[in-house]
């Protein structure tokens, strides 16, 4: 995968601690129609194909899988330490009695987060990406083989903590949800606009710390809206649960 940051070693990718076998890098789909009229030297071949087509095909497959099981899936993306796992723990605690929740945890190393999710009472699979900085559709496809999905359930994919690379990769999810925590600065939307642009929902977390910070929630929301006018924003605190009921209400309307 991300060779630039020293990875691509597919052998490094682990699902629940087990190495993922080398991934098939050949394309199965047929493009013979593209090359019909080209025989001469120095000839042009029209391709007109998305660069991430292979990923997107697997994402479509994941999407069909979710639809067949009536699973609503979210891809959570944020910087490391914004509170994704804590938010999930609270969500499982608050909604877990009436809603089946499963989690795919993405981290470079350790299964600490999957263990926390299981402790909180939900099914979880840990994907260790090795040096890679994002989850891709194939990793999710493999993880889904390990995760028994209940009908009418919620699946949260907690991406690797990174606000750049995960935004480009469709995992087959219904929507991307981004999280900015108040300790990060209210201009985060301006610094990472691509994430905001691809997100349907933004959670502004750790609002319990606002009295101690210079974070301006209004500014943060306005910048986010200017980047993506359709984004739905919930200021929340995973610690005190302030604002979470509004988020849950929205979630249940969209399941």
């Amino acid at each position: 995968m991300c060779q630039e940051c020293g990875c691509l070693e597919v052998d490094q990718i682990k699902i629940d601690g087990k190495l993922l076998s080398a991934r098939n890098h050949t394309h199965q789909h047929d493009h013979s129609h593209h090359a019909e009229n080209n025989v001469d030297t120095g000839r042009e071949i029209s391709i007109k194909q998305n660069i991430l087509q292979k990923n997107n095909q697997i994402a479509s497959h994941n999407r069909e899988h979710f639809a067949a099981h009536h699973v609503f899936s979210m891809n959570w993306i944020s910087a490391p330490g914004s509170g994704k796992t804590t938010l999930l723990e609270k969500m499982i605690e608050d909604l877990g009695n009436n809603l089946s929740i499963a989690v795919i945890e993405g981290d470079q190393q350790t299964d600490n987060d999957a263990a926390r999710i299981r402790q909180a009472g939900a099914e979880a699979v840990q994907v260790n990406t090795g040096a890679a900085c994002h989850l891709d559709a194939e990793m999710i496809h493999q993880a889904l083989h390990k995760l028994p999905l209940q009908k009418n359930s919620l699946l949260v994919i907690e991406n690797v903590g990174n606000m750049v690379c995960p935004t480009a990769y469709d995992l087959g999810e219904h929507l991307k949800l981004s999280i900015i925590s108040c300790t990060e600065g209210d201009d985060k939307p301006l610094k990472y606009p691509d994430l905001l642009l691809t997100s349907k929902v933004l959670l502004i977390n750790k609002i319990d710390l606002l009295p101690y910070l210079d974070f301006n929630v209004e500014n943060c929301m306005q910048w986010a809206k200017k980047i993506n006018p359709e984004i739905i924003i919930f200021p929340v605190s995973a610690k005190t649960k302030e604002g979470l009921s509004e988020f849950y209400q929205w979630l249940q309307q969209n399941l």
């Binding site: 120095g42 000839r43 007109k48």
Partner: peptide, 11 residues
């Protein structure tokens, strides 16, 4: 938001 390969030239 495009990310496309338009064409290639080959010999």
């Amino acid at each position: 938001q495009e990310l496309n390969i338009k064409s290639i030239e080959v010999e």
